[in-house]
Write a protein that binds this DNA or RNA. Structure first.
Lengths: 153, 153
DNA sequence: TATAATTATTTCGAAATCGAGATAATTGAA
DNA sequence: TTCAATTATCTCGATTTCGAAATAATTATA
């Protein structure tokens, strides 16, 4: 008998729908919040990476923020035009270009990151801290497994 | 003392990152799977809605699939060109246009939906059925809460 | 050393999505 | 009934992302 398998099929479909809807609602609110600072989610993610991890080669940014290389070029262009970062060629390897926060970029993040954290607590306030910890574990497992099979299925 | 609040801030940030990464990995695989049938995720979602719920007014589709009205026009155009659905004016209300699956569209879904379900079970195989059920509950709570506050924060 | 393979970044064109506004039909209120 | 407000769809221009290919530099191999 495989009623069990049938059931897992339905539940898997359901989980995907629920996850998609929740993410969309959450992202929409986070995006709205950050738009107030003249940034979109991607731009914020890049600035945050540089703010917390220091200067990064362009392509490292792509790996962390999960963007194609051509997309990063675009985002870094925009942030450079806005004055939040500069491109800095690596002296050892002339293929590499670092993205480096400007003082203005640093100041910006100092100002808005705490606000972002507050907003995050509010937006994700549907679960208690303990529930969030549990959920992080489960979602991490889910994500790692999905990533592992990237080539096979 | 508010060390508790500090902690929830960090955990909320973490949860957002984990959710984003997991969703991206999952979506990438689902997308890859469906691409084999010449569809993207949005097109599949629209076809699935019509397949399971029957013909729908264009704007109902937008609500269900969470797309702006202009985006649905675009998707429905594509599906119509591919021959999977047709537009059918509503006789009672001449503003309304229904999207209706063609026989070809129906046949297509009959063929690919079971495969999609199988793929889904595989992709989301990182959790047991019970864990999935638990996760659905939590993510639902999270999503509903985030949606509720859409206007305020 | 010369050549091939790899790596980092950019350019370019296409796809997907959005929001604002246009058009047309319906509903509600005076 | 008439006019204003609402509703459904579409058009248009802009934004964001992608993948394929171009360019340039580095590393590995023969």
């Amino acid at each position: 008998m495989n009623g069990q398998k049938e059931r897992d099929g339905e539940i898997s479909l359901k989980l995907f729908v629920v996850l998609s809807r929740a993410m969309q609602a959450i992202q929409k609110r986070v995006e709205a919040n950050i738009k107030g600072f003249g940034l979109n989610l991607t731009e914020f993610a890049v600035l945050e990476l540089l703010y917390h991890k220091g200067e990064q080669p362009i392509q490292k940014i792509g790996q962390k923020v999960l963007l194609a290389s051509s997309s990063i070029t675009y985002v870094v262009d925009k942030l450079e035009k806005k004055g939040y970062l500069v491109r800095q060629p690596c002296p050892n390897d002339r293929r590499v270009i670092y993205a480096v926060l400007t003082d203005e970029g640093k100041k910006m993040m100092e100002k808005i990151f705490p606000m972002h954290r507050e907003a995050m607590m509010e937006i994700l306030g549907g679960l208690t801290t303990e529930e969030k910890e549990w959920t992080i574990e489960k979602i991490k497992k889910l994500g790692l497994y999905a990533k592992k099979g990237e080539s096979s299925t």
